[in-house]
């Protein structure tokens, strides 16, 4: 198995400074966020430009070229409800360090994002959900199969280019569902599929000082079950150290005393 893929989540229009930078096409705040995440251990960077209904295509192209030209064609995960904007971003995307990721498809309204990824030779994050939270793993698996069939019909390589998202759930409120999510990751792994997702959702609404411990424990347990990637904040040192340690224990990377520096 390859090393765990950390997708850095911090270039997101929900952040006021990034929102402003996107509105004014000011590269500095975005590049600063990119750099701190790459320095902290991110492999992919997530770029969320929001709904971007007006100038989405122009904005995504600008974001992709701005970030890739500054950071040696770092691979990116593109996120917006505007499909044309994603296609526009991919049209200027350099693949030398990895395919673009389309975030995301689901088994409901957003299923056409699988077509988008297939048409553009991209990876798709396939969220195992249709509307709302799946009741149980049978339901998750049904959605997974629906998306899998669609991807395969379109000629995608499902073990490489479809990364299934089990839908991580918040502990504070859905504590009794946590083991289901882990079990589902195990099922995906047993079928040979890659997986990812918004892992920090588990610690939503918990006190700030508790989030790193909840996130890092979740990631360790999920990696044991076979999780291959997560969309996280790589500047959470505890989390990244946990991921690197789990990669060593899983023999995904060779141990050296300085492994945390790599």
């Amino acid at each position: 198995m390859g090393k765990f893929v950390i997708i850095g989540e911090r270039i997101h229009c929900i952040s006021p400074s990034i929102k402003k930078a996107m509105e004014t096409m000011d590269p500095a705040p975005i590049l600063a966020r990119a750099k701190e995440q790459l320095d902290a251990g991110a492999t992919y960077l997530h770029v969320n430009i929001g709904p971007a209904e007006k100038n989405g295509e122009e904005l995504m192209k600008w974001a992709v070229t701005t970030i890739q030209s500054e950071f040696d064609n770092v691979p990116l995960c593109l996120d917006t409800a505007n499909r044309k904007a994603i296609e526009a971003g991919i049209s200027v995307y350099n693949r030398s360090k990895g395919k673009p990721i389309v975030n995301s498809a689901d088994a409901g309204d957003r299923i056409e994002n699988i077509d988008l990824a297939a048409d553009n030779d991209a990876i798709v994050i396939a969220l195992c959900s249709k509307a709302g939270v799946p009741a149980d793993n049978d339901e998750r698996m049904m959605y997974c199969q629906e998306m899998l069939e669609r991807g395969m019909e379109l000629g995608m390589d499902p073990t490489e280019d479809m990364w299934f998202d089990p839908l991580f759930l918040v502990i504070k409120g859905m504590q009794d569902k946590q083991m289901d999510v882990l079990e589902f990751i195990k099922q995906l792994s047993d079928m040979g599929f890659k997986s990812t997702g918004g892992l920090s959702n588990v610690s939503n609404m918990a006190p700030k000082e508790l989030r790193p411990i909840l996130d890092s424990t979740t990631v360790a347990m999920a990696m044991y079950c076979g999780l291959t990637s997560a969309i996280v904040n790589p500047c959470d040192r505890r989390l990244v150290e946990t991921i690197k340690s789990a990669d060593i224990i899983k023999n995904n990377a060779l141990y050296a005393d300085s492994f945390l520096d790599l």
């Binding site: 060779l254 141990y255 050296a256 005393d257 300085s258 520096d261």
Partner: peptide, 14 residues
């Protein structure tokens, strides 16, 4: 010693 081989390369690169 494969771990030391890697470590030494890391130290030199650092």
């Amino acid at each position: 010693d494969i771990n030391l081989a890697k470590q030494l390369n890391v130290l030199i690169s650092q």
